[in-house]
Design a binder for these strands. Structure first.
Lengths: 355, 355
DNA sequence: TTGGGATTTGTGTCCGCACACAGTTAAATT
DNA sequence: AATTTAACTGTGTGCGGACACAAATCCCAA
């Protein structure tokens, strides 16, 4: 019965309208050069039927070698970006077969591998689209200006720059993620506990976005009116100052909770807690980095909030590819869920590939 | 520079091997009728290069109107299956444009709308593949037998039947999900607390799989050697007996935690807890059903474990479609992560579409 | 009325793969 | 040696859409 629901093709429309395929094509893509009569004939058919172009056929005859440049911070110094790189690799796997080439670039804070320099290099190859993790605001802005100028569409992920107009932004609501950390911290609260929010790493000074997490965290406690003392701390990532600072912290017996806003350093904190037998302190951090998982399994880290860096990269690239290749509409913002990782669900997250 | 990374096509292989495209095609699909010499020539090229067929071109000339039947329990009596239905709708949206038709069917426990009857109906249309939620074991087995006989590939989701050999299974590890509930329950434990595992609903008698959750829950406490008293309870879903049973339960002041294994009934439990001012009881349930979210927001439900029914259906259908249309390899089992939903991350889950 | 430019329309080709079918060659039979 | 049979190989076409280019039509001025 519902057997031969022959899909309507351009050919069919042409026949129905009594014009040639070329004319239908011109109307569909409003390329102009169509007489009002023909236009009317085609349009009257188009309103009657619901034409769905065959995506496969459309992109088959497409310009091969679409090129997407991906720019992220150098991954060798931070396993977080290592995860992102995995996501890029998966995207390459997925999209190469459609003739889409994905070229990754890596930047440092400054010098001749700064974001600006690297982006300039990337743009030389005249990519059809760009996917960018813009963690340094001012540099990012000049890159984005170039992109606008060259009319290259771009997707941002990880960090948003709302005032630019990206095709799409992929990331999380950082304030809400701070609030979530707050709730997780409070699950076994006691009245006179002291909680500390820690921002660790050299990027702190440039990364206003970390403050969002802190604000969210505090917001949670304001709302709930919990009588906690909350302080915050900025520490450089340099080995010595970091461990010294933590050791000092740990000596304070009132401190019962630490919330580390940067994903990489929470493992270091955990190791120091362990050495100083302060595993009574509830430690909350970000992301399923290898070291983090180790301490989560041991119970030193209580919770991790998963930002899903791998998937962020994958989805970002996919949005761009879908836009370029299939002309699909992509969401303006794609905010990932705030995933709570704890001992009893680590495995389920590790084993499930990209989710 | 890296400009024309021309993808290797059958044509190119033919040229490299010094044979015709037809021969390459015969080797690739081992259709036979190829001389050993030609075979060798082609194979030597194939080992050197990594041939990736263009999925688009392959499926372009494909049989249009692939048909996939989806069979799930009647959704009007259980919002869980309502969620699943949303997933089906999304899959239709996604795959219709590729010429794949998705036909849903709904079954009840028995009668002329039993799984067997409905499946018989579905099979009349000779679908190219089937996606099935087999919650009643014996009936499901006869359906699966038919599928094997008719050589129709099938994907199972929600409930696994490992001894059948589905193309793919999509779901969660229920034992681990029980363990997770255990950990969530224990976050603010006290020594002499009593915990209750509740199985609610008429399907309990047929659904051995609910026991997995209970076992996982108990397993967690065994391992941790927590001194909790854990009891379990099977209750019919009939209005009266349910509320009576819960009211009775609630009178016991030692009870500090309830773990409801069926997603739909936890809201009822929550409403009764609220009426009887026993919100001190930690309540854990499953899934982001509308009613459940209401009580989670109010704080009556502490945690929900998300089984992601919508996505389970979507992914199940997509696996089948990828298999039929693109000949893609699909994972033998696709176990979803065990997502923890709590007040401060509800929104992030609700707003992010299908993840 | 005709020429010439502008506008409109139709046809053909390519994209990469799958598969049917015709064509070629070699071996086997008479 | 002629002919059948089998084994192998190459060519051609279609899938649906995009786009280039050729062909057809129109309009207006000379």
């Amino acid at each position: 019965m519902s057997n031969s629901i022959k899909n309507i093709r351009i050919k069919d429309i042409a026949q129905m309208a009594g014009v040639s395929e070329g004319t239908v094509d011109r109307v569909l893509h409003n390329r102009g050069n169509v007489s009002l009569v023909a236009q009317a004939k085609v349009n009257s058919v188009l309103t009657k039927i619901h034409y769905k172009p065959n995506v496969l056929a459309r992109s088959l005859g497409k310009v091969r070698n679409l090129k997407i440049s991906v720019i992220i911070p150098e991954y060798r110094f931070d396993p977080y970006w290592g995860e992102v790189k995995f996501g890029i690799a998966q995207a390459q796997d997925e999209w190469n077969q459609y003739g889409v080439t994905i070229e990754p670039f890596y930047y440092l804070h400054d010098g001749n591998l700064s974001l600006e320099q690297v982006a300039k290099e990337a743009l030389k190859a005249r990519p059809n689209g760009m996917v960018l993790a813009p963690i340094f605001y001012p540099q990012a802005m000049t890159v984005i200006a170039s992109l606008h100028e060259m009319k290259i569409p771009y997707v941002l992920f990880n960090t948003n720059i709302p005032e630019s107009k990206p095709l799409s932004f992929i990331g999380q609501d950082l304030r809400k993620s701070g609030r979530l950390a707050g709730q997780l911290m409070g699950l076994d609260h006691k009245e006179n506990d002291e909680l500390v929010v820690m921002h660790i790493g050299e990027s702190v000074k440039d990364s206003i976005y970390l403050m969002e997490k802190e604000n969210g965290f505090k917001e949670f406690y304001n709302k709930e009116r919990h009588p906690f003392k909350i302080t915050s701390l900025n520490i450089d990532a340099s080995e010595k100052s970091l461990s010294e600072a933590i050791v000092r912290l740990v000596k304070n017996k009132n401190i019962k909770g630490l919330f580390v806003t940067t994903s990489k350093s929470v493992a270091t904190v955990a190791s120091i807690l362990l050495k100083n037998s302060r595993t009574d302190i509830r430690l909350i951090g970000y992301d399923m980095l290898k070291e983090n998982l180790k301490y989560l399994k041991k119970g030193v880290i209580s919770f991790l909030i998963n930002q899903n860096p791998k998937r962020q990269a994958f989805v970002g690239i996919s949005h761009m590819a879908n836009h370029l290749l299939f002309k699909k509409n992509v969401p303006h913002t794609d905010l990932f869920p705030l995933e709570v990782i704890m001992q009893e669900n680590i495995d389920s997250y590790v084993s499930s590939g990209i989710h």
